[in-house]
Design a protein around this nucleic acid. Structure first.
Lengths: 218, 218
DNA sequence: ATTACTAGTAGACGAGTAA
DNA sequence: TTTACTCGTCTACTAGTAA
């Protein structure tokens, strides 16, 4: 991905083209990019060709908008900046305790996972997970965490059922060692599952909807 | 500032050249920038000429490091990304209550400020301020807040003393209307002063070092 | 007003090479 | 090995202009 394309995408995003179509003439975009109308027009065609933006070429003025892959390119660059400016050796996520539906417990209880947790994390997890709903403004941090390596936990098959690869990230809640566990191939979620040697809910006297901070090591 | 320079600065920062000198040959930088050794060498000379990096040209390998103005250029771009991805209509700052030294109260008590607070914020502040020490990982958000307009409060002279311009930003702590107040020409600080119609410490039963979140409107 | 073609040009790049 | 010069090429830009 050439830098000039992300530069253009960023300026379009700043003009509001990330949530919605915006009406921007090639001249206006040229002003934003400090280049001529002709070059801006060419840039738009290039972005279109690469599927980074989509366009609605109306009668008077074109309307453009970033595509999902255009937004992804920007996020990549954004995460580089986070790595530069935010990351020391951990990221703090803010959120609230939520009730799980027991599926976390079902997975964690599998010996195929438990043995690896013990070997790679240094503690045998209490059966069941603590579910934290991450604040909307912090969900982006999950991308940054996922862009780091983490501790890979291999999937396995047991009783005709297959359990996929997951990734664990060592974490701390009020100085208690724990880890967050996410599926290796996961979609967007705002609830994370925390495993710990202790029963965190009891140990820390947490209730549903209690506010909580978790420090994820990188 | 041409995009190609911030691109190079960013890659140097990712290699660690933001805190310390790093040993990077022009070939290595060329790899990072996806360009030839020759072009990378030229890019380094250009960055040096613009005062964006400094170099220690050793016998075997050069060592380079971003200058303060190089870091500023990166921060500008970082703040653009924050505006794109983080900002809805508010920023949440996380921090802890600290004891002030009474100087906040002295300023806020000035009628020259109080009248403007009442007119522009819609409440008459309780005498004295609540001091919040912002978490280290959130101090960068203050730059973003300062890059927005805020509510200007004009300075004045009273009793032979001059009181400078300050900027107020409407905020909320647990749904109570308040505002943070910063000097218009301020240096780096990690403690913010909060004014409110109520005595926040009493109303919310806060103690020194209590953890607190404040939502600043943009 | 728009968007976007063609043509001409400045400058960015890499190969070769010196120190 | 380094860094960084010169020089030829090629590409990314703008001006002019059409639709």
């Amino acid at each position: 991905m050439d830098e000039k394309y992300t530069f253009a995408l960023r300026k379009i995003a700043l003009l509001g083209g990330i949530d919605d179509y915006i009406a921007v003439s090639s001249r206006e975009l040229g002003d934003a990019l400090e280049m001529s109308q002709q070059s801006a027009s060419k840039r738009i065609l290039e972005l279109l060709e690469q599927g980074l933006i989509i366009r609605d070429l109306g009668a008077r003025k074109q309307r453009i908008k970033l595509t999902a892959s255009g937004v992804d390119e920007l996020k990549k660059e954004y995460n580089e900046y986070r790595r530069i400016f935010e990351l020391t050796d951990h990221i703090t996520l803010h959120g609230a305790i939520k009730d799980g539906m027991g599926e976390g417990q079902y997975y964690i209880d599998q010996e195929g996972y438990r043995n690896q947790f013990e070997a790679k994390l240094g503690f045998r997890p209490y059966p069941g997970t603590l579910n934290i709903q991450i604040d909307k403004e912090d969900v982006g941090k999950l991308d940054v965490i996922k862009s780091t390596s983490g501790i890979p936990i291999e999937g396995f098959t047991y009783g005709g059922r297959s359990f996929g690869d997951v990734i664990a990230y060592k974490s701390k809640i009020r100085n208690i060692e724990c880890a967050i566990v996410v599926p290796a191939r996961s979609h967007y979620v705002d609830i994370i599952e925390v495993i710990c040697h202790y029963h965190l809910r009891r140990t820390l006297s947490l209730n549903t909807d209690s506010r909580i901070d978790i420090k994820v090591s990188l």
